[in-house]
């Protein structure tokens, strides 16, 4: 391997001089080529995402039942701040986000490093096992979660029998514990999903760097923080942003496990949007306004994440 490497470098050097000249004449040309790579996606996303997004934005200044919409100016935006359900949804979603995303990212990163160890036995089995939650049907896993955390569920039996609790905790009927269950459920379902991104990215990290570090006496933990994390930074950024978006739009888990309850203790913004559009007499205008709150939040959080990751060079 190393032989090949040096050979290529030897060849590279003289050729590179020639290339620079050609490169200059082609610089203009190459810039254009770059656009050709991205143009189809730009057009498609404009048609299928931005155009409807603009429509939705216009809708956020309208209100009314179903198709009887009329312009109400900023009334929807004002309504937001006096709407207790919205405030509950925003608070819950923020709590989910702040606790769940870091928890999941760290866990997924940790698992993927463990599973990337070439000397580990049963790698495939562990990988498949940990990936399974995200293909397990929502119906199945919500039934299971409700069963596990039910008053006479396994968790309670464990807690009571081993003396951790004097009596069974009604997890799903308690505002605090219901949130915990939801956070566990989201983490359970999506950790394996994020792990895949890390696993694939880890293949791109040059093994020789680790060898060099080992020779320098770095232990596993130092290797993790000084090599793995910096090398995977682009993907960690990617998963942080996509997980933030995912959690801000969280819907399935909440609807299926607690249905937003008890009371509004676990209702999410997306569930509220759904309720406004389909469960209640539809008010697509107000629903759009609530949607744009998510957009604004994601934009702000993404800018912060990009900044922290130092993407802007």
């Amino acid at each position: 391997m190393s032989q090949q490497l040096t050979k290529k470098n030897e060849l590279d050097l003289p050729l590179r001089h020639k290339e620079t000249k050609r490169q200059k004449t082609n610089l203009y040309f190459r810039k254009k080529v770059g656009w050709l790579f991205v143009i189809i996606s730009i057009i498609a996303i404009t048609i299928f995402n931005f155009y409807p997004m603009v429509q939705a934005f216009l809708l956020s200044f309208q209100s009314g039942m179903g198709s009887n919409l009329e312009y109400v100016g900023l009334a929807n935006w004002k309504r937001l701040f006096g709407d207790p359900t919205f405030i509950a949804a925003l608070t819950n979603t923020s709590i989910f986000l702040l606790i769940q995303v870091p928890l999941m990212i760290v866990l997924a990163l940790f698992l993927s490093v463990l599973l990337n160890d070439p000397t580990l036995k049963f790698k495939s089995f562990f990988r498949i096992a940990i990936f399974l939650p995200c293909v397990t049907s929502l119906v199945a896993y919500s039934v299971i979660f409700k069963y596990l955390f039910g008053v006479d569920g396994i968790i309670n039996q464990f807690l009571v029998n081993f003396g951790f609790a004097s009596q069974a905790v009604n997890f799903l009927a308690d505002p605090f514990w219901a949130k915990v269950v939801i956070i566990l459920a989201i983490t359970w379902r999506w950790t394996g999903y994020n792990m895949i991104f890390y696993l694939s990215a880890l293949q791109n990290v040059d093994k020789s760097i680790y060898e060099a570090a080992r020779i320098d006496g770095a232990n596993a933990i130092q290797q993790f923080f000084q090599i793995t994390v910096p090398m995977l930074k682009p993907i960690i950024l990617f998963t942080s942003i996509t997980s933030t978006i995912g959690t801000l739009q969280i819907f399935d888990e909440v609807v299926n496990i607690t249905n937003g309850g008890p009371g509004n203790a676990t209702i999410s913004i997306s569930q509220y949007i759904y309720n406004l559009s389909f469960k209640y007499t539809p008010d697509f205008g107000y629903a759009s306004t609530v949607s744009y709150v998510i957009v604004i939040l994601v934009v702000i959080l993404s800018i912060i994440q990009f900044r922290v990751a130092g993407e802007k060079k």
Partner: peptide
Amino acid sequence: ILLLSMMIPFAAIMVPLYRM
């Protein structure tokens, strides 16, 4: 700008998309 397109819940753009 393209990244922005991921940020809106699908339920919000569904009706315009359907109309399209």
